[in-house]
Amino acid sequence: MKKIFFPRLFQLLSVIWGVGTLTFILMRALPGDMAYRIAASRYGQDNVSSDAADLVRQELNLDQGAFVAYFSWLKELLQGNLGSSLVSDEPVWQILQHMLGHSLMLASVSLLLSFFIAIPLGLLGAAFGKKVDQGIVVFSTTIRAMPVFVVGLIFILVFSIHWNWLPVAGFGSPEHIVLPALSLAFTLAAISNRVVRNAAIKAFHAPFYRFAQIKGLSSGRTFLRHGTRHIALPVVAFLGIQLVGMIEGIVMIESLFSWPGIGHGLAHAIFARDIPVIQGAALLMGILFVVLNTLVDLVCYRLDPRARGKA
């Protein structure tokens, strides 16, 4: 347990410093004048001018050297202060709270839905003949080959336009989350069902599984007692990898469905060069990534007695 926890704590601190520093360097290295970008986001395209940029530069003290700005950020961070948005002047923490709440909700609902899709599909592919498996491969490849926003558009066309069951975009009621979550879940399940399938085939053909059947256990009981845990292990481990893909998909989905999440917010903050928001969002996503991966490790540790033995 300690062997998992302490390295991860060190990793977490490194991620906080590394991500913050890297985003700072990358944002500073981008071509173009930051003051103009911020002014465009603050005042809109009809009202952005060199006067507005000068005002922004003066107000935010953008002329200070990069080192001074970096160390003042680091000092603030050590005090737990993420600063304020350069565009809206709102505290970064408040903005992130609003965005993160929405993103976490969307991510967890999508993940849950993806399990409900991937596990039955994977088991079907593993348990039944080649034709069923090939059919599922075609389905998975088709979904995965499509950009996630195309999957979203198809769902909108079917559920919102054709049947008029669900809203096209927006947030604020439980109905609004169904389509974005379903779109994301399908793209996640397109890969994870293959992991379930492979893990299931491996388990079904393992000697201990055959032995359980030979000794007279029913197929249901064999699956529950000797199959589930073995199949769960690679699937849970894959979950950690899938979180990266999820961040990629969430930006597009949030934009398509007008969902005010962190992925979409981060993309807009980059356009606006809103460095404190970018640093805060990247930092939070980095922390989340480490925390979730630690959780995945802990679950694997609980699932796999061999790992406990080594620990």
């Binding site: 926003f149 558009l153 909108i156 066309l157 919102s160 336009i161 008029n164 809203p167 096209v168 975009a169 927006g170 934009s255 398509l256 469905f257 007008s258 979409h264």
Partner: peptide, 19 residues
């Protein structure tokens, strides 16, 4: 007022009657 960043999403909102 809902900000819809993608033009296709806004059009679909008009079509479905959501907006």
């Amino acid at each position: 007022y809902l900000t819809g960043h993608r033009a296709e999403s806004r059009v679909l909102q008009a079509r479905s009657g959501q907006a």
